[in-house]
C-alpha cells in the first residue's frame, strides 16, 4: 500500500493542490510567484478568448459525445448480431482506440491538408464539390474536423464497452417480448435500453471526461487556431502556461475545468443511482 500511496500523494494530490495554489499566484517559468488572490480569475472572467475556449470545449464535448454515443451504440448493436468472423471484427474495430492519439491525429492532419486532402479530391472526383475544402483553415470547418477526428477515435471504446453490456442481456427476454408482439423498435426501447442504462452511464462519463480534457488532437491538428476557434481549455492552458510562460494563468484555466468535470461525474453518478433504484436494486 505504501509505495502507491506515496507516489500518488507526491505526484497527484500535491500537484493538484499546487495547481490550485498556482492559480492564485503570478508565477512565471523560472520565477516563483507571489499570492495575488483571485486576480487571475478576474482577468480570465473578462477575457474573451477564455470564454471562447469554454464555449468551444462545451461544444466539442457535447457534440462529440452525442455522436460517439449514437454511432458507438449502433456499431455495438451490429456487432452483437451473429456475424461471421466476430472476434476479428471486434479486434479491428478497436484499432483506432489503441494507436497513439498523436500519431493517428497526424494521419488526420494529412487527410485534412488544405492542398492535398484526399477527402477534397474524392469529393471533387464524385462531382459533389467544385473547389477544395479548407478543412482546418476556416473556423467552422476546423471545429467540425476536430470533432470528426475525435469521434473517429472515440467510437471503438463506446462500441466495445456497450457490446459487453449487450452480451449480458439474456436472449430469453427478447423472445418473451417478441411473443408479446413487440416490434423491433419496442424491443430496443423497452428491453435493450433499460438494461443497458447503467453501463451507458459509466461509459459516457468516461467518454465525456476524456473529451472535455482533450489536448493532443487539437494540439496536433490546429493548435487552437484558426483565430482561436478550436481552442479548448486544455490547449489554452498549455499555450498560456507553458508556451507563454504564465504558469499562474495557465493553472487558473486548468482549475477552471474542475467544476465542469465534477458536474459531469455527479450527473452520471446520480443518473446511475436513480436507475438502480427504479429497477428495484438495493444499495
Amino acid at each position: 500500500m505504501l509505495p502507491a500511496a506515496a507516489l500518488l500523494l507526491v505526484f497527484l494530490t500535491y500537484p493538484l493542490g499546487l495547481g490550485v495554489w498556482l492559480g492564485f499566484t503570478d508565477a512565471r517559468i523560472g520565477r516563483p510567484g507571489i499570492f495575488i488572490g483571485i486576480e487571475n480569475y478576474e482577468y480570465l472572467w473578462s477575457d474573451a478568448v477564455f470564454w471562447l475556449s469554454v464555449f468551444n470545449t462545451l461544444l466539442y464535448t457535447i457534440s462529440a459525445s452525442i455522436l460517439k454515443f449514437a454511432l458507438g451504440l449502433w456499431l455495438a448493436l451490429i456487432l452483437n448480431q451473429n456475424l461471421p468472423f466476430k472476434s476479428f471484427f471486434r479486434a479491428i474495430v478497436l484499432l483506432p482506440w489503441v494507436v497513439p492519439t498523436v500519431l493517428s491525429a497526424i494521419a488526420f492532419w494529412w487527410i485534412y491538408d488544405s492542398q492535398f486532402s484526399i477527402l477534397s479530391w474524392a469529393l471533387q472526383q464524385m462531382g459533389l464539390i467544385d473547389h477544395r475544402i479548407n478543412f482546418l483553415g476556416d473556423p467552422e470547418n476546423a471545429r467540425a474536423s476536430v470533432i470528426a477526428a475525435n469521434v473517429w477515435r472515440g467510437i471503438p471504446f463506446v462500441a466495445i464497452t456497450l457490446l459487453a453490456g449487450l452480451q449480458t442481456i439474456p436472449q430469453s427476454l427478447y423472445e418473451a417480448a417478441t411473443l408479446d408482439g413487440a416490434s423491433r423498435w419496442q424491443l430496443f426501447r423497452y428491453v435493450t435500453l433499460p438494461l443497458l442504462t447503467p453501463i451507458i452511464a459509466i461509459t459516457m462519463t468516461f467518454s465525456v471526461l476524456f473529451t472535455f480534457t482533450d489536448f493532443q488532437l487539437i494540439y496536433v491538428l490546429t493548435r487552437g487556431g484558426p483565430v482561436n476557434a478550436t481552442h479548448l481549455m486544455a490547449t489554452l492552458s498549455f499555450q498560456r502556461g507553458i508556451s507563454g510562460g504564465q504558469l499562474g494563468e495557465g493553472a487558473a484555466i486548468a482549475v477552471a475545468m474542475i467544476p465542469f468535470l465534477l458536474a459531469a461525474i455527479l450527473f452520471s453518478y446520480f443518473g446511475l443511482q436513480r436507475r438502480k433504484w427504479q429497477q428495484g436494486g438495493g444499495d
Partner: peptide
C-alpha cells in the same frame, strides 16, 4: 479515492507537475 484519482486528467496536472 483511487478510482477518483484515475478520473483526474493529465491536462489539469501538467502545469503544477512541470513546476515540481
Amino acid at each position: 479515492a483511487i478510482f477518483l484519482a484515475y478520473l483526474v486528467p493529465p491536462s489539469i496536472l501538467f502545469i503544477p507537475l512541470s513546476v515540481m
